[in-house]
């Protein structure tokens, strides 16, 4: 089993995507299927960007076993008051500055759910948000 923990800094656009890039490198070294890596990247990137946009900091745990890729994104931040609204395609609270950088379509969370084999989101307002995701290898 492979295990690694990463940290995402909220607000740091310069580094946005760098954790996803590290994860991609690991998955490639393990010779996993290209399509599976691509799906893992959708999840990792959307979750990482949300942490950069909305959270103060986020801990990313990656675990790879013979059966699955498991990713957990646990952030400290404002949390999400209405999860089902946040999961709706097109819903976004992104600011104008964020939209000018190409974010804020309101598609990130719905796409993470769609791309995952198993997806769970929990959030506490004023504390933070946690995503738990499984991608099965077969």
């Amino acid at each position: 089993m492979f295990k690694k923990v990463f940290r995402v800094e909220g607000g740091n656009f310069q580094k946005a995507g760098s954790v996803s890039k590290q994860i991609k490198k690991i998955l490639k070294q393990l010779n996993l299927d290209g399509e599976l890596i691509w799906r893992a990247m959708i999840i990792a990137y959307e979750a990482e960007i949300n942490a950069v946009l909305y959270a103060h900091e986020c801990q990313v745990s990656l675990e790879i076993t013979a059966e699955k890729i498991y990713m957990r994104f646990k952030d400290k931040g404002p949390g999400i008051p209405d999860i089902s609204l946040a999961m709706t395609e097109g819903y976004s609270t992104a600011t104008r500055a964020m939209r000018e950088r190409g974010f804020g379509a309101g598609l990130g969370l719905p796409n993470i759910r769609k791309t995952s084999d198993h997806f769970e989101i929990t959030s506490t307002v004023g504390v933070g948000t946690t995503l738990d995701i499984d991608l099965f290898l077969n």
């Binding site: 290209g34 990137y45 190409g102 974010f103 379509a105 598609l107 796409n111």
Partner: peptide, 13 residues
Amino acid sequence: SDLISQVLASCSR
């Protein structure tokens, strides 16, 4: 597209 998530939601490799 100018929206990154739109690419990830609808675009193939």
